[in-house]
């Protein structure tokens, strides 16, 4: 009942601070195998905090794992930033989680095939990009050859 009350209260615009889009963020280094595990734990904790259900938690942690491993293996290490989001009440007031994964590696020369990779070959590790895209609601990737790759993914909590 309390959770529900909170929802009602929020929708009535009662909260002391009205709908900040960004409710907090944290950045983690991704430059070792240990970091990959740390990042997974941090993302899991963030999904729980954002109120995601078990299946959505698994989707987001899996996407994070794919992207972080990319940055570590293909990008020679990088960082992952977790942001808690909240939509303004008039847009539904949903909570969300945004992950930004950056590396300064060689970049991805052929983005289009990188995005279809995991899907067609199945067995291959690919770049894990296509998979992460399918697990999240919003997806954008920016890559410059020789300078690095930045992937931003977001999932909203529909429940």
């Amino acid at each position: 009942m309390t959770l529900y009350d909170e929802q009602l209260t929020r929708s009535a615009g009662l909260g002391p601070q009205r709908s900040p889009v960004r409710a907090g963020s944290a950045t983690y280094s991704v430059s070792s195998e240990e970091d990959l595990l740390t990042v997974r734990h941090a993302v899991r904790a963030a999904t729980v905090e954002a109120g995601f259900g078990l299946v959505d938690q698994t989707r987001i942690v899996t996407a994070a794992s794919e992207l972080a491993r990319n940055a570590y293996i293909h990008g020679g290490g990088g960082s992952l930033t977790i942001e808690q989001l909240r939509q303004p009440p008039q847009q539904g007031g949903r909570r969300g989680l945004r992950l930004t994964v950056r590396d300064e590696g060689p970049g991805i020369p052929d983005l289009e095939s990188a995005l279809t990779d995991g899907f067609t070959t199945g067995a291959g590790l690919g770049h894990g990009l296509g998979g992460a895209q399918r697990l999240m609601h919003e997806f954008s990737v920016h890559s410059t050859t020789g300078e690095g790759t930045t992937v931003v993914v977001t999932r909203w909590n529909g429940r």
Binding site: V55, G131, R134
Partner: peptide, 11 residues
């Protein structure tokens, strides 16, 4: 949850 995610991942 793992099965759903794996399928959506395309694996």
């Amino acid at each position: 949850a793992v099965a759903i995610t794996l399928v959506e991942l395309g694996l």
